[in-house]
């Protein structure tokens, strides 16, 4: 079965979505990611959606669920690389991805995750 690969980078997990996701693929990603967070004790998840030319409410909801599940497992989620046309469309659709942290690119997303992990380690 198709799977979206999950890479480990130190204490973070990196997911790059490069295919037009059908629904089952999105649900499999949810399961795989939560399992990986448990296995690796990851502190953060970075999801790169720069290759996605469409984000509909299903995929938006999936991103929101991943962020909520990860938060319950003490991992932060940052979604990076959203195309401008996708952002414009999402707002008109009425989906503001409330509660999901975003960054413009992978580099900035990683910086955000590192800062968050450092802050939580001190606390």
């Amino acid at each position: 079965m198709d799977r979206i690969p999950i890479l480990r980078m130190g204490e973070f997990l990196l997911v790059t979505i490069q295919v037009d996701m059908h629904d089952q693929l999105a649900l499999t990603l949810q399961d795989d990611l939560t399992a990986q967070i448990t296995r690796t004790g990851a502190r953060g998840v970075l999801i790169d959606i720069s290759s996605l030319d469409v984000v509909d409410s299903f995929i938006g909801r999936m991103l929101g669920s991943i962020a909520s599940m990860a938060r319950l497992m003490n991992a932060e989620t940052v979604v990076v690389g959203m195309q401008p046309s996708v952002a414009i469309t999402l707002v008109e659709l009425g989906l503001t991805l409330h509660g999901i942290r975003t960054a413009l690119n992978v580099e900035k997303g990683m910086a955000l995750l590192r800062a968050g992990a450092a802050r939580r380690s001190r606390a």
Binding site: V54, P84, I88, T89
Partner: peptide
Amino acid sequence: LVDQTKLVT
């Protein structure tokens, strides 16, 4: 591109 994205969505 924006109109394509809106219609496809």
